[in-house]
Nucleic acid binder design. Structure first.
Length: 110
DNA sequence: TAAATGACAAGTG
DNA sequence: CCACTTGCCATTT
């Protein structure tokens, strides 16, 4: 388990309800400019034991990344339950729902 | 030890 | 907007 991995986990746990983040975004925040695949791997290996809100991580296009239709559907349900809506193309509007770290900092400062 | 794989991203035409 | 290419890197074969 690397420091970067811990950073990623911390960041992901920081994502507020009703917001989503992208793989590349998490990777960059953790210090890797191109570590999207590491984020994926991390989610796959330890989403359970670290209690990661994996459903709030989506692809850069705002789509759910899961290929398996069942898991895909589960994630969609969870996101919709948090107030995130999809268009008829199964795409999330990132302009509305993408989380940013600055956003959280402002909230914690005030 | 080399090659393939993966819930990906960004650039190009 | 779509298809294709390249970059990335831990894990599995």
């Amino acid at each position: 388990m690397t420091n970067v991995s811990m950073e990623m986990i911390k960041l992901m746990k920081m994502i507020p309800k009703g917001k989503v983040a992208t793989y590349g975004q998490i990777a960059k925040m953790a210090g890797l400019s191109n570590g999207a695949r590491q984020v994926v791997r991390l989610i796959h290996t330890c989403s359970e034991k670290f209690d990661i809100p994996w459903h709030r991580i989506v692809s850069s296009k705002g789509q759910i990344g899961i290929k398996d239709p069942i898991g895909h559907n589960i994630q969609k349900q969870m996101l919709e339950k948090e107030g995130i809506n999809f268009d008829n193309q199964e795409i999330i509007d990132l302009n509305l729902f993408q989380w940013t770290f600055e956003e959280s900092e402002i909230l914690s400062e005030n």
